[in-house]
Amino acid sequence: MQSSARVTMYSPSAFVFVLISCGICVITVTAQTPTPAPADTPCALKSNTTCDECLQNVTCLWCITTKKCIEYPVKSILPSNSVCPLNDARWGLCWLNFQILIITVSVLAGIIIIAVLVCCFCCCKCEKIGLFNRRKREDMQMERQTRLRKDRQKTRRSEMQMRHDEIRHKYGLSKDNPYARMDDH
């Protein structure tokens, strides 16, 4: 007897994806501090101050070694080494190293891509297995129908043979010995 209860199993990649997503959400929620963003103050005026004062403006980049607050070089996605080494650059948060930020984001992106590929592979694999099981069921059903058809045909043949034997007996054509000639009677 089969139970109608269904057990759902999750793959390890789905668990890792959910775990990483939760971690990213927690980091972004805790990292967001409400700070006023005065856009009017140029970044160069905040040089030789503190990292927190510099990064109040979203367009500013703080360099720890030179203690300079500069405009973020938007045209070259990453700040060049001549402007500020990545290890010393801070943008958005003073405690977050720019180099570690780039590495972390690229690793997370790689994990997400791998998780998506694994999920796609598993879904395709499950679909192929389902297709195989469907074909197997269809083959079994065809075999069962063929067997039933043969049984009905055998039954009809035996019924027809019985009727023919009755007719032969009725008209005295029945043979006691199946090997006897019909002329002897």
Rank of each mutant, 00 (worst) to 15 (best):
I102G: 03
K136H: 04
I129L: 12
S174M: 04
Q99D: 02
R147Q: 13
C22R: 08
R90N: 00
T59R: 14
L93M: 15
Y10K: 11
N81V: 14
V58E: 08
R147W: 05
R90V: 02
D176L: 07
C54Q: 15
A109K: 01
C122T: 13
I70G: 02
E53D: 03
K170V: 11
V7H: 01
T33H: 15
C63A: 05
E138K: 06
F15I: 14
R134I: 00
V118P: 03
P38L: 11
N177H: 05
S76N: 12
C43R: 05
R135C: 08
T146C: 14
A14D: 06
G92R: 05
H169I: 08
M162Q: 11
H185E: 14
Q56C: 01
F121C: 13
K68G: 00
C69W: 11
L96R: 03
R181E: 11
H164W: 07
V83K: 04
I64C: 01
K125A: 06
Y171I: 13
R156E: 12
K150G: 00
N48V: 03
E159V: 06
H185Y: 15
V18E: 06
P42W: 03
I27C: 02
F17H: 12
D139T: 02
T59F: 11
I167A: 10
P34I: 12
P73H: 06
C51T: 00
E143A: 15
I70E: 14
T41N: 07
S3K: 09
N177L: 10
Q32N: 03
K170N: 09
C119N: 09
T8W: 11
M142A: 13
C60M: 11
Y179K: 05
C22W: 04
N133W: 07
F98W: 03
Y72D: 08
A31I: 04
E53A: 04
P73W: 00
Q56P: 03
K136M: 07
M162R: 13
V118S: 01
T33M: 08
D151M: 15
S80M: 09
G110F: 12
A31L: 11
P34M: 03
A44I: 05
L108A: 15
R144Y: 13
F121K: 05
Q99A: 04
C63G: 06
S47Q: 04
L101K: 12
W95H: 13
H185S: 10
A180I: 14
P85R: 02
L117I: 00
C25D: 09
L108R: 05
R6P: 00
R90E: 00
S76G: 12
V116P: 00
F121G: 01
I100T: 12
D176I: 09
Q32T: 04
M182D: 09
V74E: 09
R181K: 11
C22D: 04
Y171A: 06
N48W: 09
C60Y: 03
T30N: 10
F15M: 14
M182W: 07
S11L: 14
S11G: 02
R144F: 13
T155R: 14
D183W: 09
K67R: 09
